[in-house]
Design a protein around this nucleic acid. Structure first.
Lengths: 192, 192
DNA sequence: ATTTTTGAACTGACCAGTCAGAATAAGAAA
DNA sequence: TTTCTTATTCTGACTGGTCAGTTCAAAAAT
């Protein structure tokens, strides 16, 4: 099936280059398919992009949900959720940018709205997990869950980036441990 | 002086669109200057871009340094440094992306290297501040200062973004307070 | 007189999207 | 099984548009 090959190639190319620098020609070449086949299977670039994003978000949400439903202690759960996110972000370098930042000009309003909705849904999903933890577990209740969700994604994204360009200095494990500490404890300043 | 007008316009256009979608025609129009003048003052797009990034980084470093040299308590200092960063990021929506992410294809290797060096310099600058705090103040020593610097920038960037699309729900002050809490204390989980 | 600016015209590259026709699969008839 | 027919899937050259970068003669500013 060409459709699958195209989606896989699109994930790669979009992840490597972001939306605007990804070209349909390269996606076609990577999928070993003629350009026309892209347009036979998808109405256009933005629709193809939407499909890719949707798949990525659904995937990470599913993985996260599975971890959270496991009968593990909270600490373990958080570690695993962080690990899943790092997996995704390291796999698809620019996936998070694409979803969280690059959604803008050059995409039809209709598709743009769908993408924003996907993003919103995902952040709410994370926020609801945090809120739950604030009620039932030992999460600090002083922080806003929505902002916290955004912040966590930002932290994971930027530390991934840093890690990718300094792999000599850090191991994958360092990255995971750091992310856990930073997210749960921050810089841990005891002021006054 | 046209040069200044061009730089200002370039900051705007690059910040709004990122590097690749920013067009020299629009920069010229925004600066109310002929396109030829751009090329009279700068060798090309990438050089102009470099100038803009350089100015932005030098600006925020200078502001941060000034705050840190003030005779204020540590807590106050950190709050101010965060505020400065939020100012910059909110002012130039995509400035941080540009610097931290969008540096890639389509730019000559030489300029690319200079940009990466600027970015590195800035992160080291932040890291050195954190390290100093870990020695002399009450910052947790368990976190790696470089990763922490990257993480902080990521947090600020993504929360800014979230704030910008939810200004109805949050005030600028909420944003500042949240960023401070998240950076210094994280989700503050007391596990077990 | 020298420097700076203008604005328009042009080139070459890139790229999203199109389309007429080729290839392939699927099913019906012989 | 083999042949004919139709529908689906795929192809790749082509189009039209955008944009960076160049050039330059003439005008304006210093």
């Amino acid at each position: 099936m060409s459709k699958d090959k195209i989606i896989q190639a699109a994930i790669e190319v979009f992840s490597e280059n972001g939306y605007h620098r990804a070209s349909m020609d390269e996606i076609a070449a990577r999928a070993q398919v003629a350009k026309g086949t892209l347009y036979y299977n998808f109405p256009g670039k933005s629709q193809l992009f939407k499909t890719v994003v949707k798949q990525g978000i659904e995937d990470i949400m599913q993985r996260t949900e599975a971890e959270l439903n496991s009968p593990l202690p909270m600490k373990e759960k958080i570690e695993r959720v962080i690990r899943d996110h790092l997996d995704l972000f390291l796999e698809s370098r620019h996936f998070s940018h694409i979803v969280f930042n690059e959604i803008s000009n050059g995409i039809e309003q209709e598709v743009l709205d769908e993408l924003k909705e996907l993003k919103r849904k995902y952040l709410s999903f994370l926020a609801s997990i945090i809120e739950e933890g604030q009620c039932e577990e030992n999460l600090c209740r002083a922080v806003d869950a929505n902002l916290a969700a955004a912040s966590i994604v930002g932290t994971l994204e930027s530390t991934c980036n840093y890690y990718l360009s300094h792999q000599d200095a850090y191991s994958r494990d360092d990255l995971e441990q750091f992310a856990f500490t930073m997210i749960t404890q921050g810089l841990f300043i005891s002021l006054e």
